[in-house]
Amino acid sequence: MNEDHLQHTIEHKPTYGIYILVWLVLLMLTGVTVAVAGINFGNITVATALTIAIVKSYLVLTFFMHLKAETATFKLFVGVALLFLLISIALLFSDYSFL
């Protein structure tokens, strides 16, 4: 139980700096994704845009949402939720991408 009480706080030293840094990176990535969208990469256009979106949401999850400081249980939870979505989309496309 004592461990739990320590868990009342998400992390021990709150600081502004790191978040501003993450924000800057997010802005930069937005710039990149907009800039890149103009270039025609052909088939990998979608992949590029989605990769950048995934990186951005990873940053939001890890830092803004403090997932980094949470226990392993939380990370596992997020994994389960994402796995469910992944399974759904993969299996759904087993119908649509093969004909």
């Binding site: 994704t33 907009v34 969208a37 256009t45 845009a49 989605l50 950048i52 979106a53 939001v60």
Partner: peptide
């Protein structure tokens, strides 16, 4: 973050 590229960027 996902809606933006899917609607505005992937053209």
């Amino acid at each position: 973050i996902f809606l933006f590229p899917l609607f505005y960027l992937i053209t």
